[in-house]
């Protein structure tokens, strides 16, 4: 059973329905026991970084999440669920993340006057990926596949070897990472039609 962590934010229902569509049962939960018993754990999320950390603390979810990752079971982070794994974010001030991945979360910053000045922030819409590192979650996904993005901040991992895909928006940014049992993406697989559902299926198929 896949556990989707509910910390009071974001569109969890779409993630759950996405898994169901591809034949994987998923529960939305904030019960540490159910997270511990789950075969796979998903940390979704939209919202603000600081609120996310506060909610995870208030619901006593920090430990269950870290334990799930340590246990080696497949872990999927989506959007804020990717960013929160990092050391710190500069969203609305400076905020510490889970620090499971060394690196930071920064805002797209396109200076006025140069050729990027027409690039809007948030980065909203369908953009394509370049695969840097083959991982089972990306099975059947190729360079040039389109995914749905909606975010103003992106991650910069210190160790570039964990970059799974990059996407171009003014420059190439990290659109997903893979590290041991973790796969985490900035785009929303649950909102990316066929390609997104393929990723959810691949993740659910991991053992």
């Amino acid at each position: 059973m896949i556990a989707i962590i509910d910390y009071g934010m974001g569109n969890l229902r779409s993630v759950q329905k996405g898994f169901e569509r591809v034949g994987h049962d998923a529960v939305v939960t904030r019960d540490p026991r159910r997270i511990a018993d789950a075969s796979h754990v998903v940390l979704p999320g939209v919202g603000a970084f600081k609120d996310c950390m506060e909610n995870l603390k208030n619901y006593n979810l920090l430990e269950p999440i870290c334990k799930a990752i340590e246990s080696g079971k497949p872990f999927l982070g989506i959007c804020l669920g990717l960013q929160i794994l990092f050391t710190e974010s500069e969203e609305f001030g400076r905020h510490r993340g889970l620090d499971l991945i060394k690196g930071k979360v920064v805002r797209f910053n396109f200076k006025l006057g140069n050729q990027d000045s027409q690039l809007k922030v948030p980065h909203i819409g369908w953009n394509d990926i370049r695969i840097k590192c083959r991982t089972p979650v990306l099975e059947g996904i190729d360079d040039g596949f389109f995914f749905y993005f909606v975010h103003s901040y992106y991650v910069i991992p210190e160790d570039e070897r964990m970059i799974a895909t990059t996407t171009s928006y003014g420059m190439n940014f990290t659109s997903s990472i893979c590290m041991e049992n973790i796969f985490a993406c900035q785009f929303h697989p649950e909102k990316s039609q066929e390609g997104g559902l393929k990723i959810l299926k691949n993740f659910g198929d991991l053992s």
Binding site: R13, S14, V46, G47, A48, F92, I124, H151, S152, K191
Partner: peptide
């Protein structure tokens, strides 16, 4: 299951509503 919400009248009545909403749910 919505990803974004759009506000019109509520924003004009109280622009701070937009601020509170974006801080709570994310500007995106």
């Amino acid at each position: 299951g919505a990803d974004k919400v759009s506000v019109n009248t509520a924003a004009v009545k109280d622009p701070d509503f937009v601020k509170r909403a974006s801080e709570r749910f994310g500007t995106q």
